[in-house]
Design a binder for these strands. Structure first.
Lengths: 149, 149
DNA sequence: CTTAGTGCAAAACCTTTGCAACTCT
DNA sequence: AGAGTTGCAAAGGTTTTGCACTAAG
C-alpha cells in the first residue's frame, strides 16, 4: 500500500476526504526531496502544477497533515512556519543546520539525543514526545567567503 | 560592577544611551526569575511598573539586547518570539521542555551537546555559533492528570 | 443527499517602520 | 546643536476565519 492509499484510509477513519488539493500537497511534500517549505513556497509549487488551489487551503492542509503526523512543523527562528515530511515517517531523526549568513537549511542525521531524553524523563519527570534541535552557524561556503574578505 | 553599569558601558561604546525604558526592560528580564517572555508579556509587566513605554520600544529594546548578547530569542513553536536572559551571561546552557497540554515551559540544564557540535563541525563542515534544543511532551502534572482520567 | 472541503476576501495577529517630538550629552 | 530614542499610528507579512459555493462519498 503506497503513501496515498494509507492517507486515504487514515482520512476516512476520521470521516475526512481525500481531495485533489490534499493529494497534490502530499505529492509535493513527498517528492521534492524531503525538503522543508513555508506555506507560501508550497503554494507556489502547487499552483504551478495545478493552479486550482488557494493559500488558505494550503494552510489548512498542512496543519491537517501535521495533526496526522504526516508532516512536521518547525521554524528556523524567523517566525515563519516550515513544513517537512515527518522524519519518523521516513527515515531517522535529523536536526537542522541553519546558516546565519545565507539562510540555507541543511540537515544532519543523528540519534544521539535518545540518551539525553532518558535523563530528562528521569530527572525532570517530563514525558518526552518529540524534540527539535537546531544549530545556528555558518555553512562551509559562507565560512570560506568570509575568510577571503 | 553590576549588570546595569556593564550595560551602560557597553551601550556607550556603541554611541548608544541607557534610557529609563532600557533600564526597566533590563530590570524586568533580570529579576523575574530568568523566565522567558513574549514582547507583549514584557510590555504588560513594564507598563504596570512605569506606564511610560510603548510596545514598539519594547520590541526595539529586546532586539537591541539580543544583538548585544544580553538576551536570547527563541520560540516555543507557535511563531511568537520569546526572550530570556542569555544563558551564557548567567549560567549554563539550558534547553526547554514545553508541555503540549498546559503550555508550561521549564528548563533543563545540560552541556551534553558540546560533543555533538564537534561531530557536526567535522562531518558537515558547519561552523556552529549557537543552538536551540526544545523537547515537547508532558509535564509531571499533566501526565498525572491524564492517567487519572 | 449530506456534510466535508474550498476559494475568496476580510480579519486577526505579531512585528516593523516612518516621522515628528523629545532628551540626553 | 546634534545624535540617539521615543510614542503613535500606519504598514507589513504571515496565518486564520466567516461564508457561500462546490464536490466527495
Amino acid at each position: 500500500m503506497n503513501f496515498e492509499e494509507t492517507l486515504k484510509t487514515a482520512l476516512h477513519e476520521k470521516g475526512l476526504r481525500l481531495t485533489p488539493q490534499r493529494q497534490v500537497v502530499l505529492e509535493v511534500m513527498l517528492n521534492l526531496g524531503g525538503q522543508h517549505y513555508t506555506a507560501d513556497q508550497v503554494y507556489e509549487i502547487v499552483k504551478a502544477k495545478s493552479d486550482d488551489i488557494s493559500l488558505a487551503t494550503i494552510y489548512r492542509t498542512l496543519e491537517l497533515f501535521v495533526e496526522m503526523n504526516i508532516l512536521r512543523k518547525f521554524d528556523s527562528g524567523d517566525g515563519i512556519g516550515r513544513y517537512e515530511i515527518d522524519p519518523q515517517n521516513s527515515e531517522h531523526y535529523h536536526h537542522h543546520l541553519i546558516c546565519l549568513q545565507c539562510g540555507k537549511i541543511t540537515e544532519f542525521k543523528d540519534d544521539l539525543l535518545d540518551d539525553l531524553e532518558e535523563v530528562i524523563a528521569q530527572k525532570a519527570g517530563f514525558r518526552i514526545a518529540d524534540h527539535c534541535l537546531r544549530f545556528f552557524g555558518y555553512c562551509q561556503e559562507c565560512d570560506k567567503n568570509s575568510k577571503k574578505m
